[in-house]
Write a protein that binds this DNA or RNA. Structure first.
Length: 1014
RNA sequence: GCGCGGUUAGCUCAGUGGUAGAGCAUUACCUUCACACGGUAGGGGUCGCAGGUUCGAAACCUGCACCGCGCACCA
């Protein structure tokens, strides 16, 4: 800090120190260190992502925790990385491909397309990482991970094999949430319910009797064997309510509640389905079934059942063995089974057309505007389509352990109300659909081949034979059979099973129709894989949900499945900082994965990982969600999200960090306002200038404080510093970041700058004024030894306070504090690993112990005494108003002390009053009308010789008197109440009595001031 | 429907039973030699409503209203 600019300029400071920290390896965690470990894994941002305010909030908190831990002497690992964001990344590259080459991914083919994704990743994947660096994040970049790194991929696939082997992963045909835009299945968590304004359509259908009909349960509707002649249309019509008339062609029944007196008798009869209109009557007939699911209060009490396109209807269909008719394609268009006019139309267009057809038929009764909740694909923002398809599912592992660790408080959530949400989700947990019909992601490590049932036992005799694996590989499999899991028609078999014949026949003898069996091999063993591929086995084409890789993040990033030094040192991690919006997506799943793969929870893995408690982190801090000033969520479409990098360029990273922290209370959403960042900048500037003031006093860092020379003001600020250290430390321990910043702000601005710095000027003789141009330089005035000593001691106090303050601030505003730490010379006295090189490992300030306080005479009475002095000053300044005197104008005060006043205190009061002089006069007789304030220290007069507006001042003081009187009445009433005086704790009683005395004193003082005005 | 937050100064928010607070905004004055990204002094609140507990409630309890969120959903 050789050149001290008048205002802090972050641009010239931030990059310099970040480079320095990197070069010095300050962020690199050493697993061999003897220091206690502290670790955090970053919530990996999407590799396609750009830094937004949510990242700023989240990562600033992680950085504060990491930096604080380093100063606490911990060995810190903050492990960074990105995730591959399956859908988002694939869509982004597809868009680029379309734009630049007018091609789809199918034009390129899977392999070539994936090459393009990697090219994109190499080119743009580190954008967000570099942005995090701009923010000052002290991540160990040497350990940066990406969820598609080869080692990471192996972890994901290994985990898949393990879970497959345990029977927790299975493939099944289920109703899933289908996104017609991305054309993939989604998990339940990726579906967001949104209220939609639509219509509730009421239409009528005619009831038919069909006495001779056979409702063939398992046949497709087109195979129905009704005789047209057996069908008797009745006069009864039923009204059905639906929001989705386009699915009518997929209806295979109408359901009523069997207890509903209106309809119970109709169960067993049929209705004529109005769509597709062109079908012959016999094919339009669908049964009326009785099902308890139907709520007869709702709609008309008659429910159309579309088992292929609705989850609840699917269940009804299963109960009544209804056929399924799929009428909607994977892309959301209608297929030919939907009927001529609808076929080929988009589902929403088809809805309109269906309504038109029904209207033409004269069966449409009404369309009421209706708001209902529709599931939307979170990613593509279109309504999802429930769809029957074959997908991979996971039965969640280690659920009881995961529930217990949070419920019994071993893992703490901050704020803890999220524990309830977490528990509720785990209690109602459904199997996780983990397969995605995408190309970008971890391919499912399952190979499949279909065999003719009759060749089993004749051509193939054993499982390994079936796998057509050479003798050499067979041996390998024999050794590492845990690597290879084989299923035949979904049932796991052992690889060394010799009795394939029995196995195969047993599997198939129940159904003569089945002529083929499916054999699955789940493995990540490359030798086995190459053998399989040679034999035309095909790998499952699906990839895994991105969260199926990020749930392994806390240990897969640390070298698992090897038992690495890093894992030993840093797992389980200490804190996790994330948003509550991914509590199910990520947090809950990581906990389950931790128990499953790192702990004793029935893991098939080597016991080297069997940690007594394998939960992946001890504390989870849930941030709020950043909103704009109007409380709206920040979003790209609204354009209400400021670009953090623009803010950093404009105000500095420290300003952004401090401002964000100050306005982010624990667990509450944050309404972001650029004003907050401005506040941060102003704060940094204040810090800068306070240090600048110290620099202007000249001289080296003063390490030694001479206790005999301490003034009451010195003791006051040291005690305030002690309090600030306590407050900030406690706040950080409780994850109350806004409280910590508020405490720092108050201490530094309102106590140190506003009072101490000003008071200290009494001990710091002004440096000689600059000579005006053309004049001879003014010679420095020699100071007396006493004054020199006092000056040096004051500077020592300033250096002490600043060197502590800067450290307290470091986790919040790392750049400016590093600049000041070095620039002010506070680093020079310290050992290299204790702050000598960088403030990053300077020790975190500790509250003063009793010895320290005793040595320096830091008694709490100095706080009270000095507060009284400052209160007198505040009142004295207020006197200027009576004379309408400008703040800058120097005026003469007279002080009539009530007790001994040291010359130093008199000087301090004079300075703080910005007085031309302060005459201390025991015998002062003020002229009538002289404004005065009284305090326990004495009376302070501002002789104005008739300048004051007596009337206005009287009014003000009279109001003041009234206010004080009312306060006195309040306290008196309390004290007069025997209920109060007998029941209240003595301390509170004493406090009230004391307060009454104080108010009475104030009353006397104010009345004296009033009388003085005549 | 179930659950969870919130409601305090114009705005954003602290405040876990004992004198209602901060920042911003605002008013007046001030470029005084660390800082106008600053200083000094001020104005501004029956703490959402109604009950209850208590000597005492912004805080604890009950109910209600409104705002927001999550989960589950009825076609």
């Amino acid at each position: 800090m050789s050149e001290i600019s008048k205002a802090y300029e972050p641009q010239s400071v931030e990059d310099k120190w970040y480079d320095f920290w990197l070069k010095q390896g300050c962020f690199t965690a050493d697993p061999k260190s003897a220091k206690p470990a502290y670790s955090i894994v970053i919530p990996p941002p999407n590799v396609t992502g750009m830094l937004h305010m949510g990242h700023v909030l989240n990562n600033t908190i992680q950085d504060i925790l990491s930096r604080k831990a380093r100063m606490d002497g911990k060995e810190v690992l903050w492990l960074p990385g990105t995730d591959h964001a399956g859908i988002a990344t694939q869509v982004m590259v597809e868009k680029q491909l379309k734009k630049e080459e007018k091609k789809s991914r199918h034009d390129l083919g899977r392999e070539e397309f994936l090459k393009r994704v990697w090219v994109w990743k190499e080119k743009h994947g580190d954008i967000i990482i570099n942005q995090l660096k701009k923010l000052g994040c002290s991540c160990d970049w040497t350990r940066e991970r990406f969820t598609m790194d080869p080692e990471y991929s192996r972890c994901v696939q290994k985990v898949f094999v393990e879970l497959y082997k345990k029977g927790l992963i299975y493939r099944g045909k289920r109703m899933v949430n289908w996104c017609p835009v991305s054309q993939t299945a989604l998990s339940d968590e990726e579906v967001e319910m949104k209220p939609q304004n639509g219509f509730m359509y009421h239409f009528k259908v005619q009831v038919a009797d069909c006495s001779g009909a056979v409702s063939a349960p398992n046949s497709a509707v087109t195979d129905r064997r009704y005789n047209e002649s057996d069908i008797k249309l009745t006069d009864t019509w039923l009204t059905i309510a639906t929001t989705r008339p386009e699915t009518i062609p997929g209806d295979t029944a109408v359901a009523v509640n069997p207890k509903d007196p209106r309809y119970a008798a109709l169960v067993g009869k049929f209705i004529v389905r109005p769509l597709p209109a062109e079908l012959p009557l016999a094919q339009k007939l669908i049964p009326i079934v009785g099902d308890e699911h139907v709520d007869f209060e709702f709609g008309t009490g008659v429910l159309k059942v579309t088992p292929a396109h609705d989850k609840a209807d699917f269940d009804i269909g299963t109960r009544h063995k209804l056929p399924l008719i799929e009428v909607i394609n994977a892309d959301g268009t209608m297929n030919t089974l939907a009927g001529g006019p609808l076929a080929g139309l988009d589902r929403f267009k088809a809805r309109k057309v269906a309504v038109e057809i029904l209207t033409e038929q004269g069966v449409m009764i009404e369309a009421k505007p209706y708001e209902n909740n529709v599931g939307f694909s979170q990613r593509a923002d279109v309504p999802i389509e429930p769809r029957l398809s074959e997908q991979w599912f996971l039965k969640y592992p280690a659920v009881p352990e995961s529930k217990a660790c949070v419920a019994d408080g071993r893992m703490k959530f901050h704020p803890d109300r999220w524990a309830k949400v977490y528990d509720h989700w785990l209690t109602n947990i459904q199997d996780w659909c983990i397969s995605r019909q995408l190309w970008w992601g971890h391919r499912i490590p399952v190979w499949e081949r279909t065999f003719d049932c009759f060749s089993i036992g004749s051509v193939y005799t054993s499982v390994s034979d079936l796998l057509s694996i050479s003798a050499k590989t067979q041996e390998f499999i024999g050794k590492e059979s845990s690597d290879v899991v084989v299923s035949i028609d979904g049932k796991q078999v052992t690889t060394d099973a010799k009795k394939l014949l029995d196995l195969g026949l047993e599997l198939n003898k129940t159904d003569a129709e089945v002529r083929e069996i499916k054999v699955q091999v789940c493995t990540i063993n490359p030798k086995v894989i190459s053998a399989l591929e040679l034999e035309r086995w095909t790998q499952d084409s699906d990839v895994l949900d991105t969260w199926f890789s990020s749930w392994l993040w806390p240990f897969a990033t640390m070298g698992w499945p090897e038992n690495t030094e890093t894992l030993k040192k840093f797992y389980p991690t200490t804190d996790l900082v994330t948003g509550p919006d991914i509590i199910f997506f990520w947090v809950a799943r990581m906990i389950m994965a931790g128990y499953e793969f790192m702990g004793e929870a029935e893991s098939a893995l080597p016991k080297k990982f069997a940690l007594p408690d394998a939960m992946p982190f001890q504390n989870v801090y849930f941030t709020g969600i950043i909103r704009d000033k109007q409380g709206r969520k920040m979003s790209k479409t609204l354009g209400n999200s400021p670009d953090p990098l623009v803010l950093i360029a404009q105000y500095g990273a420290d300003a952004l960090r401090f401002g964000t922290m100050r306005s982010a209370p624990l667990g509450q959403d944050v309404l972001f306002d650029e004003k907050d960042v401005e506040l941060g900048r102003n704060f940094c500037n204040k810090l800068w200038n306070a240090c600048r003031f110290r620099q202007m006093q000249g001289g080296e860092v003063q390490g030694e404080i001479e206790r005999t020379l301490l003034t009451p003001d010195d003791k006051w600020i040291l005690l305030k510093l002690d309090a600030a250290i306590r407050e900030v430390t406690i706040a950080l321990n409780e994850y109350k970041f806004s409280e910590a910043t508020a405490a720092l702000y108050k201490f530094f601005w309102s106590e140190y700058c506003d009072w101490y710095v000003e008071a200290s000027k009494a001990s710091l003789p002004r440096p000689p004024a600059e000579a005006a141009p053309g004049e001879a330089p003014i010679a420095a005035v020699a100071l007396s030894p006493e004054v020199e000593a006092r000056k040096a001691n004051t500077i020592a106090v300033i250096d002490f306070v600043l060197s502590h303050t800067i450290r307290l601030f470091h986790p919040f505003v790392p750049f400016i504090t590093e600049e000041l730490w070095n620039g002010m010379g506070y680093a020079t006295d310290m050992p290299d690993n204790q702050g000598g090189k960088t403030i990053m490992n300077a020790p975190w300030p500790l509250p003063f112990d009793e010895d320290f306080k005793g040595h320096y005479g830091l008694d709490d009475c100095y706080v009270e005494m000095t507060d009284t002095k400052y209160e007198l000053v505040r009142n004295g300044r207020d006197l200027r108003r009576a004379g309408n005197i400008q703040a800058a104008k120097k005026v003469k005060y007279v002080f009539k002390p009530a007790q001994h006043l040291t010359p130093h205190d008199a000087e301090v009061i004079k300075l703080l009053l910005n007085a031309e002089s302060l005459e201390v006069n025991d015998a002062y007789q003020p002229p009538k009308g002289t404004p005065v304030v009284a305090s326990p220290l004495g009376e302070l007069f501002l002789p104005l010789e008739g300048l004051i507006d007596v009337a206005a001042e009287k009014i003000r003081l009279t109001k003041e008197v009234e206010k004080i009187k009312s306060e006195i009445v309040k306290v008196e009433q309390k004290l007069a109440n025997p209920n109060f005086t007998t029941k209240v704790p003595p301390a509170v009683l004493a406090e009230h009595e004391q307060r009454l005395v104080e108010w009475r004193t104030r009353l006397a003082h104010t009345q004296a001031s009033l009388e003085a005005l005549g």
